[in-house]
Design a protein around this nucleic acid. Sequence first.
DNA 1: TATGAGCGG
Length: 281
Amino acid sequence: MMQQPAAGAVPPQMAPPPPMAQQQYQYQQPPPPPQSQQPYMAMNLMHPQSQPPPVWPLHQVPAGVPPQQQQPGQPASADEVRTLWIGDLQYYMDENYLLSCFSQTGEVASVKVIRNKQTGQMEGYGFIEFVSRAAAERVLQTYNGTPLPSGESTYRLNWASFSSGEKRDETPEFTIFVGDLAADVTDYMLQETFRACFPSVKGAKVVIDRLTGRSKGYGFVKFGDEAEQNRAMTEMNGVLCSTRPMRIGAASTKKTVPAQQFAKEQCVEMLIIFGPGADFS
DNA sequence: TATGAGCGG
């Protein structure tokens, strides 16, 4: 059941990586694109009503890029899992924005950003359905961890769990806390600062104040390798990121501890469900 | 300033 997508295996036919991948760091804080001049609005996708529909149907996907050929042997079937979950979205990243991010693949079937039912405010995550599982897989492999067009954060993608059951990436990760960050440090800068020395870096997150949109001055870096995590704790402490030396600490609480801890939690859950006298033989 | 983490219909 633990079938992970092959890491790093990027199919050669994949469209060029996301728009900002070439621009390594953007040191100035890029303001959210104002509604009026967003490039992604130039897609004839404006809905006649004031509220955009929650899902853009396939036939409305911009015609700029012709859809890629279906992979031979991988036809889209009704039950095939082809939806990705996307997180870490900023408040202004709506369906149009997401669509523009992935439109160059020509393989987006629908896009949905989740909103609060009461307030209508976006919750910061959404779903992207592709025309095939292969297309979703390619996007997951090539986009995940790369900067969004805005440059301020990185794509956080995973298989959508509702329809996919086991597909979510549950590989272990080891997280550190990074404090004392300069105000202009982005997810991507933080990630690349560490990745230069530690290839197992899986991602980085600068914590943003949801109200002000500004950095709270601290963040987290995830490693795939525990030894690198430990090494980074000492070797990167005091190292400059942007204009200030970072202060590194252990990330507190759960979720840092993978496999073993997970198994333990499962056991506890079994105990709660079946009681201490249960016979599992 | 100092410890995120959000999976719908």
